[in-house]
Write a protein that binds this DNA or RNA. Structure first.
Lengths: 221, 221
DNA sequence: GTAATAAGTTAGATGATTCTAACAAAATCA
DNA sequence: TGATTTTGTTAGAATCATCTAACTTATTAC
């Protein structure tokens, strides 16, 4: 059996390794806000359980078993977020903390029911893909998304997802009426700080800092 | 702060003390399937926190603070059960184990939303009262319910609640189409084992053992 | 009203999850 | 390349929630 604590380590590791494929004890420690020695011994334990490849002074990797398990936790998290938004009327900026707790519920029937009631969604309210029941992630189109900050003047793109969303960022986007699916046109880019002036829907000219643009994943129209 | 474990002790104590007002370490130990010494030390801890009145060799009682806290956990449990049945389509026999986990979620907004979506229900799917936001329980009519096993031949009653329901009992009731609200007529009582033959809705003559009748709470029509 | 049984308590151990302090290895910088 | 900084590891302690074994108090049964 796997504890909630262990689940949290797996999930954090899954997130950290999604790009590079590996992560350090230090990164994991910072991500979880848990001291390095604690992380170190947990890694040994997860290695014992066949979920992590751990060797002294080497980067951490999830085993296939660990990856699958982590993806299934992420699946529960993202399904929950979608359920909270679609069926309970929460805002996309409110659901993370609740999902963080509900993802640990042990009840296949519960998540099965959510999935069914939602019509088997492929993405969560922030545009992130929901892993399937086998822990497989639909990366096909997702990985093709680019950052708004990498677009050029004159580009027109569709806002597809928010990466590493925080409450604050989501509230900011709410305040600007910037929702998933919006068609965004890059009107100009300020050379000094790389801030963008964009237009979309009812907004003729909105200024977005580079820090914001870096978090918005878009697809060329 | 109070841990999930502590919440479970409080809840069990609340259930045990609901009738007599007090409970023994031994009863609590059996209820939770946790050995007496463990229960004993937990009682000392909860006494430290002002939730339980504990004195050596004396019966256990919840303090007012403990009662309120326990009732609020029961509230979360019962609201969840109602939500699972009403909004997600689960059967009343399936919801206990899920609610047992969800009751520990820390998110006032989450339960607030459930309550709102359900239209502020007063009872759960098994007919038990849902404590209000202040931990007050609507006992007015609930305590007036009597057991079906205490009825006489010829009595006609309404099935209002199931006490201490188990999955097995609920599945049994499902199999006999016996649902809350059913008007039940006691046709005869077998003197030997006190089993009852009753009629209700489409059923002309169903035999119910005393063990079953003892769990069904009814109100005279 | 003792003797036997049940219930309650104390003491000490274990495993999980965390920490700090101290040391070792790797990476970076000058 | 050698010194410094960062990262990783080991050792040892703390807390929580649990246990078993042994002892004490209360209750029940003759």
């Amino acid at each position: 059996m796997i504890s909630q604590t262990e689940e949290n380590y797996l999930k954090a590791l899954w997130n950290l390794t999604s790009t590079k494929g590996e992560a350090s004890v230090n990164e994991l420690s910072k991500q979880l806000d848990i001291k390095m020695p604690t992380v170190n011994s947990m890694m040994k334990r997860l290695a014992e359980k066949g979920l992590v490849n751990y060797e002294s002074y080497k980067p951490l990797k999830l085993t296939d078993k660990g990856k699958k398990l982590a993806a299934l936790i992420i699946r529960k998290h993202r399904l929950t977020e979608m359920y909270l938004v679609e069926k309970m009327g929460f805002g996309w900026e409110e659901v993370h903390d609740i999902a963080e707790q509900i993802e640990h519920i042990q009840s296949p029937a519960f998540f099965e029911k959510m999935d069914e009631l939602l019509g088997y969604p492929k993405i969560d309210p922030h545009g992130s893909p929901i892993p399937d029941k086998n822990g497989k992630v639909e990366t096909e189109q997702y990985i093709r998304y680019i950052k708004l900050s990498d677009c050029k003047e004159g580009d027109t793109v569709t806002f597809m997802a928010v990466s590493h969303s925080s409450d604050e960022l989501l509230k900011f986007l709410n305040s600007r009426d910037l929702a998933l699916g919006s068609k965004i046109k890059v009107k100009s880019i300020e050379p000094f700080d790389e801030s963008m002036t964009v237009s979309y829907a009812s907004r003729k000219a909105e200024m977005l800092s580079n820090k914001v643009c870096d978090k918005l994943l878009v697809r060329p129209v």
